[in-house]
Nucleic acid binder design. Structure first.
Length: 356
DNA sequence: AAATCGGGGTT
DNA sequence: AACCCAGATTT
């Protein structure tokens, strides 16, 4: 039996039930694919449910404001996905009358839709025979064919894409693409794959030569940068605080945070250029109370953030910087914030401030 | 071609 | 602690 047919047979017997497998509506398939980029099904599922509940159609999503979209995305990470999601929804709703492109090439033009996602939508919604090559596919193909080319090298990407095209099932593109991914996720797992009961083990190259555990080959990762964040949490008249939105490129673009002093070490040794905060800190009438003695280490893919929060109580505030917002504590949960800040807000504002 | 962008689960 | 996840975009 053909490679693709074996996988489809396995898939029909072993696939998990998931809400996006009950539709071919391109809006919902697109939504699920963006949410699931670099994200496990278990983590993305609740977000898919809340997005489809809040925004049943592409027009509902298009009519939302970006902050509302970011708020619903909060905690999922890679926030450019949310911004691109919103931009594409507006484009499809306003310029395409709510109709998604129906080809791989057309889908590729959408913001946030790359080779993988265009292939996924085109195959699942329109039965176009274009192969998906995600992390699961790299693993399955590298092991089955014994390919040691690094999957994240330029040659590897081209080699695996070419191989995937040659293996594509032209009768059932939707089932085949989902089959090979599901097979990678459940059977041909990264660690301790179920080779003994694998339906492909009699023809698997790495199974023959004992290289299952070393495949796929991946170029080693970058080194992690340490950053030191000091957040200034103002408690103004015991009812208000100041937040600001992150702008420019970098982590958490579009999300809100407290005024931040970033340093080369964990101590506040650097004077901030923010005159509002600078004046408050230098005013000896205001006591600066550290919230946490040891820094909270928030780990991102490329950065470790050593974070301290400082609480400053004051009766009133004068003019604030243009990028800052003076808000009531009770409204802080309506703003999209990084998980690092969300955790702090949960513990501090709920237990310390509100209970007073 | 390499770096960047999150947060969480698994081993 | 290292690796990975239904990758895309920027530098």
């Amino acid at each position: 039996m053909k490679f693709s047919k074996k996988l489809i047979t396995w898939y029909l017997q072993n696939k998990r039930s998931m809400p996006w497998r009950k539709t071919t509506d391109p809006y919902r398939i697109w939504l699920s694919e963006i949410i699931l980029q670099q994200t496990r099904v278990a983590q993305g599922l609740p977000y898919y449910l809340s997005f489809t509940e809040t925004f049943p159609t592409v027009f509902d999503l298009a009519n939302a404001n970006e902050e509302q979209v970011l708020k619903l995305w909060q905690g999922l990470g890679y926030y450019s996905r949310a911004r691109n999601l919103h931009a594409t929804a507006k484009y499809v709703a306003n310029d395409l009358n709510g109709v998604f492109p129906d080809t791989y090439i057309g889908l590729l033009k959408l913001k946030g839709v790359g080779d993988y996602t265009a292939s996924a939508i085109a195959s699942i919604c329109y039965k176009e025979a274009v192969p998906v090559v995600d992390g699961n596919v790299y693993r399955v193909l590298s092991r089955y064919f014994g390919i040691e080319t690094p999957i994240n090298s330029t040659e590897g990407v081209k080699e695996f894409k070419k191989l995937a095209i040659s293996l594509m099932d032209h009768d059932e593109p939707a089932d085949y693409n989902q089959a090979i991914m599901e097979f990678g996720a459940l059977q041909c797992k990264p660690k301790n794959p179920y080779c003994i009961v694998c339906p492909l083990n009699d023809s698997c190259e790495s199974q023959k030569n004992g290289k299952v555990t070393v495949l796929p080959v991946k170029l080693k990762k970058l080194k992690i940068k340490k950053r030191y964040f000091n957040y200034i949490v103002l408690l103004i008249n015991n009812s208000q605080t100041i937040i600001q939105q992150r702008v420019g490129n970098g982590i958490w673009k579009g999300l809100y945070e407290f005024p931040l002093i970033e340093n080369e070490t964990i101590d506040i040794t650097k004077i901030t250029s923010d005159t509002t905060i600078k004046n408050i800190i230098e005013d000896k009438n205001h006591e600066i109370v550290p919230y946490n003695e040891d820094p909270i280490i928030h780990k991102l893919s490329h950065q470790h953030l050593y974070t301290k929060f400082y609480i400053i109580r004051l009766d009133a505030i004068g003019v604030i910087s243009k990028n800052q917002k003076l808000i009531d504590y009770k409204d802080i949960k309506t703003y999209p914030v990084p998980i690092l800040l969300g955790n702090f807000i949960d513990s501090f504002f709920e237990e310390t401030v509100v209970s007073e």
